[in-house]
Nucleic acid binder design. Structure first.
Length: 806
RNA sequence: GCCGGUGUGAUGGAAUGGUAGACGUAGCGGAUUCAAAAUCCGCCGGGGGCAACUCCGUGUGGGUUCGAGUCCCACCACCGGCACCA
């Protein structure tokens, strides 16, 4: 019989679908296990090989855990709102809902084709009104708690998408999605107060089993820094509050810098306090017109303007110091104003040199501060020229000055974060409508919860507008409504939610996907929470992963979900590169389509190869030749089935290898070392070829291989008549006996003075004396020990003996 | 600049401080075949030697250890994240 994957694979896929083999219930005697992969954005290109790596990996884990006796939830869905669909719809004049529907159909077919063990009764789609009803509901709860607010501020504006972006969506000054330049635009936007959760988002990482680089990247992004806020006085009477991480250097503050957008500057200009108003206004205008890229350009010359007519007063010594405006001070961080200590800060030093400001050393221990700033914060620095702080180390001076500031009422300890509130509105069509109404009399009002879902209206044109308004704004029938509060005329919000809204809570919906009363029932949430293991891409670390942790914490605070954190464990896969090690792209012509691979080699080969390709966490490049190697392996397994001995016992020569492999494959799957798990199975098959293979040997092999190559294993399982107790995927993982993982005789390395000289074969667990005696009997060893005294021996049981001879 | 990671044959990659290169590709030799494909068997880090064998070898230089790819120190290269964040 030939291994005809083209017939076998659809046969089993059909059976699994019809019998709902992988459906799971929200209750069980078994322990629960919730395995999650990031749901795809159903693009027109279909499933990418990049998707198959995490999906296959978690499918292997899910299948293995079922065999371990868990009640496994392994769901799939579609994150279908978003710009590419909208852009495709515009270009081809097809409704985005239709495009989405077709793409989802294609994705579903492909996911079935790969034999994934998803519970298909729990599929969700973020564009389904029954789903986004609850996305809107969560937004309303955020609004009720004051965590959603609308405000006018400078925001990131993508010049190509014609849409605002969150900070997280701007990568190196350009749009994360399309690569177009991002500029600052003053716009009124819905914002979510993620900053209120900054500290908890850091602290709660400690108890989670996330890979370290995810934790550090999130901490980096949140960017906590501790210091103090200090109030300086202006000679015109106003308070100027600054944030500093180095309050110890306060005596060295010789000037101040405000961001060009700072409110005080506007005030001084309006009240005519500034003698150089024209220069100041010109500088403000120049700063405003700069793109993010220009503003953050590396090693840029410092620029600025000194305010003529107003000075600051250093509160520790009463000195009058000049005030500048400069774009190296950001309006959106801290208070938008700094005290400048050029002797101990590189940026301030550079600015001071250019503008001729005074540089006073207040921390000794470095080089001449006139030549370079001394920025060390450790014990090497001793305070000088600082009155009561003199003689203290930097570390000791900080609490002393902070306490002093607090006592005098001119400052306090303060923590700042780089994290900004989440800009939550988009001027586009294909997203969840924001369920808010604006009334001239009552301001912003939420629509009543019983009116949800607020449906996305049909429009004729989805084109984004150049004036920065959503396409829906032209739909006057929809826009004009009545105020839920006073009943008077009012207008709906026409911006929609960002792409990240639907994915911020989707894992909860899988727990109870058809619930019309709540986003999920309390019983379902209690049973399945939290997600036990979530695998996804590193590119989502400071986007989806952070956003969904924030939403989950909010839902926890209002009593909707039972756990503080959504995901207990987070792992991440490396990218799949093209044949030459370059990123796959249409322009390079190195894109691998899973459909082609499955057609040529079958899904089991595709699955096995994508797991064997290399270290799961690292990038790996595709190799057509190596795919053939995996096909060859599966063929060898198949062909072996025709030469089995009848016994259901293990063949003695294979026994210890089988026990060892059972342990290794199980451990490797849990550790995501899929490549070595498959290597171990290959080695075992090589043993079977060499030693012969019994039905019993083969049965265990099929069970171990079934998570990787489920179709072929089911077929063989059936053909060989093992199926009385159900399919292979429904069996228990084979048991191993630790004592049998070691053969009766072991080969041991013999070193003389640390150098390998020979190997000997001895009975397992031989004691030191026996091993040493056997080693000394070896002529190759004798060559190096002859005429010397054995000073010491080191034994590593069953592995190695080292003879120290002098 | 700060944080994290990685450096091993021709190649993808293996190695709880204990026989470096498992397993797979490619390559070479053989069997089978009219021939090829497929399949099966063998070889496959470098130098020296007919051989037995021997010396060298995990980015570089030191160190700890009976023993280091693995631990420590310094450096080099590359990759990823953050970055005028006060």
């Amino acid at each position: 019989m030939k291994y005809d994957f083209a017939a076998i694979e659809p046969k089993w896929q059909k059976k699994w679908a019809e019998e709902k083999t992988f459906r799971c219930e929200n209750h069980s005697e078994k322990p629960k296990f919730y395995a999650l992969v990031e749901f795809p954005y159903p693009s027109g290109q279909g499933l990418h090989v990049g998707h198959t790596r995490p999906y296959t990996a978690m499918d292997v884990v899910a299948r293995k855990r079922r065999m371990d006796g868990y009640n496994v939830l392994f769901p799939m869905g579609y994150d279908a709102f978003g710009l590419p669909t909208e852009n495709y719809a515009i270009k081809n004049h097809i409704h985005p809902a239709k495009v989405t529907h077709d793409n989802i159909e294609n994705f579903t077919k492909q996911l079935h084709m790969l034999g994934y063990s998803f519970d298909w009764d729990r599929v969700i789609n973020t564009t389904d009104p029954a789903y986004y009803k609850w996305t809107q509901w969560i937004f309303l709860q955020l609004w009720k708690k004051g965590l959603a607010y609308k405000t006018t501020m400078p925001v990131n504006w993508c010049t190509s998408c014609k849409c605002v972006l969150a900070n997280e969506e701007v990568v190196e000054g350009v749009c994360e999605r399309c690569g177009a330049p991002v500029v600052r635009k003053e716009k009124s936007q819905w914002m979510l107060k993620i900053t209120e959760y900054a500290q908890r988002l850091i602290d709660d990482l400690d108890d989670l089993d996330f890979i370290e680089r995810v934790k550090t990247q999130q901490k980096n992004w949140i960017g906590r820094s501790t210091g103090a806020e200090v109030t300086f006085k202006a000679t015109t009477g106003e308070d100027i509050v600054v944030f500093t991480t180095r309050p110890d250097t306060l005596f060295g503050a010789t000037y101040m810098v405000l961001s060009p957008e700072h409110a005080l500057v506007k005030g001084w200009l309006e009240s005519g306090k500034l003698n150089n108003a024209d220069a100041v206004k010109a500088y403000q205008a120049a700063a405003a017109s700069k793109s993010d890229l220009e503003r953050t350009e590396l090693n840029k010359e410092k620029t600025g303007v000194c305010l003529d007519g107003v000075k600051g007063i250093n509160p520790v010594n009463g000195k009058e110091i000049p005030i500048f405006i400069s774009d190296y001070v950001l309006a959106t961080y801290g208070t938008g104003a700094i005290m400048a200590v050029p002797a101990h800060d590189d940026r301030d030093w550079e600015f001071a040199k250019k503008f001729g400001c005074e540089i006073i050393e207040v921390v000794s221990g470095g080089e001449d501060v006139q030549k370079a700033a001394f920025t060390a914060k450790d014990e090497t620095g001793i305070l000088v020229n600082s009155d009561f702080l003199d003689g203290l180390t930097v570390k000791d001076a900080i609490p002393v000055i902070t306490k002093w500031l607090e006592e005098k009422g001119i400052g306090e300890a303060k923590v700042n974060y780089k994290l900004r509130d989440w800009v939550f509105s988009r001027q586009r069509y294909w997203g969840e409508p924001i369920p808010m109404v604006y009334c001239e009399k009552c301001g912003w009002q939420p629509i009543s919860e019983d009116q949800l879902p607020l449906l996305l209206p049909d429009v004729d044109s989805y084109e984004p507008t150049d004036d920065g308004e959503s396409p829906i704004s032209k739909m006057t029938d929809w826009v004009n409504t009545t105020c839920p509060h006073c009943g008077g005329p009012a207008k709906r919000e026409t911006d929609t939610m960002p792409q990240w809204a639907g994915s911020s809570w989707y894992f909860l919906r899988y727990m109870d996907p058809h619930n019309s009363e709540a986003l999920a029932s309390k019983e379902a949430l209690d049973y399945w929470s939290p997600v036990d293991w979530y695998n996804g891409g590193m590119e989502h670390t400071t986007l989806h992963l952070l956003y969904s942790r924030f939403w989950h914490k909010f839902l926890y605070d209002i009593g909707v979900v039972p756990t503080k954190e959504p995901y207990q464990k987070r792992t991440s896969h490396g990218m799949i590169l093209g044949e030459g090690g370059e990123k796959m792209s249409k322009s390079r012509g190195n894109v691998v389509n899973p459909n082609d691979v499955v057609a040529q080699y079958g899904a089991d080969t595709m699955r096995t190869y994508i797991m064997f390709i290399g270290d799961f966490e690292k990038a790996a490049s595709w190799s057509d030749n190596a795919v053939k190697g995996c096909k060859r392996f599966l063929d060898r397994v198949w062909n072996l089935s025709e030469n089995l001995t009848d016994s259901l016992e293990y063949t003695p020569a294979n026994e210890s290898a089988i026990h060892k492999t059972i342990k290794k494959v199980a451990d490797d799957i849990e550790a995501m070392k899929f490549n070595t798990a498959i290597a171990a199975l290959m080695a075992l098959v090589n043993d079977f070829y060499a030693n012969g293979c019994s039905k019993g040997d083969y049965k265990t092999l099929l069970l171990m291989l079934s998570p990787f190559a489920p179709h072929m294993c089911e077929e063989l399982w059936e053909t060989l008549g093992f199926n009385a107790a159900g399919m292979a995927c429904q069996q228990a993982w084979p048991a191993y006996d630790e004592s049998k993982t070691v053969a009766a005789e072991v080969q041991m390395a013999v070193q003389v003075c640390g150098k390998l000289r020979s190997t000997i074969t001895v009975p397992v667990d031989s004691d030191e004396a026996a091993v040493v005696a056997a080693a000394l009997a070896d002529p190759k060893v004798q060559k190096f020990t002859e005429g010397k005294n054995l000073v010491k021996t080191i034994l590593v049981p069953n592995k190695l003996v080292n003879l120290i001879a002098k």
